[in-house]
């Protein structure tokens, strides 16, 4: 039984094929990292999987109870404060008024936002803070499946590690599965049970690779070695740092 299963999914924007023949499975308690060069269709795939974009072809089966998504460009409502943005998701999730405040304070603490930050509007926040608000919003509703769309790109190294640990811990408690989109193979190797590589032209998943052990027990040396080997020895990762070839062609 999988919590998410995509079979033979395809998509096109304005007649231009973006994704074709995508097969992907996520097992309960598993974090699958999705890597691929910029513009290969990772965000589109996540939107299709979450039901935000209708696929042109293929089947999607969702076995989870509630999902949340951290969007690539934080997607905060500019007219609401940081707290208001988090609360919006909580209200939609049907949380009771009393519990909402407690949840809000708890997640804000998790992502290191002060109560002062919470009272600010998105234009008053830095890029990294906005991203953290988006992370807090997604965590607040306690989803059992999370779509991460390059969630930590705007964060500095220390904070990024801290967020990655947060994901690893939440997942190790058995409460979370997810699809984790990233450019960064190091991040993928740290967080994920399995790394799926999307074709440069979105033409199917090229294959899967599993870093050693489980995310929680993996050491930094193991992660480093695995990434080095992958980039040097494994042809499947050859195009991972390419730019959008479609636009050049």
């Amino acid at each position: 039984m999988n919590v998410l299963e995509l079979s033979n999914v395809g998509h096109a924007y304005l007649g231009r094929t973006i994704l074709e023949g995508i097969n992907l499975r996520v097992a309960p308690g598993e974090i699958v990292a999705l890597v691929g060069p910029s513009g290969c269709g990772k965000s589109t795939l996540a939107h299709i999987a979450a039901g935000l974009t209708a696929a042109r072809s293929g089947h999607i089966t969702r076995g989870y109870a509630r999902h949340a998504m951290i969007f690539q460009d934080s997607a905060l409502m500019p007219w609401a404060t940081a707290a208001g943005n988090i609360d919006y998701a909580l209200r939609l999730s049907g949380a009771k008024r009393r519990d909402r405040h407690a949840r809000l304070v708890a997640v804000a603490d998790h992502v290191a936002l002060t109560s002062e930050d919470l009272a600010k509007y998105p234009i008053e926040l830095s890029g990294g803070m906005r991203q953290r608000v988006a992370i807090a919003r997604a965590l607040a509703i306690q989803p059992d499946f999370m779509y991460f769309d390059e969630p930590f790109t705007a964060l500095d190294v220390a904070l990024r590690r801290r967020m990655q640990d947060l994901v690893i811990e939440t997942c190790a408690d058995g409460n979370l599965s997810g699809l984790f989109i990233t450019h960064d193979l190091n991040e993928a190797a740290r967080i994920a049970h399995r790394v799926a590589i999307l074709d440069t032209r979105g033409n199917g998943i090229l294959g899967h690779r599993s870093p050693p052990g489980s995310p929680r027990t993996r050491t930094d040396t193991q992660v480093f070695d695995w990434v080095q080997n992958a980039l040097q020895g494994d042809p499947i990762f050859r195009h991972i740092h390419d730019v959008d070839e479609r636009q050049i062609a």
């Binding site: 935000l52 999902h67 998504m69 969007f71 997607a75 409502m77 919006y88 939609l92």
Partner: peptide, 12 residues
């Protein structure tokens, strides 16, 4: 359009 998607993703 991202805000529409966000809101839909959270179940609106």
């Amino acid at each position: 359009p991202v805000l529409d998607k966000m809101s839909e993703a959270f179940g609106a």
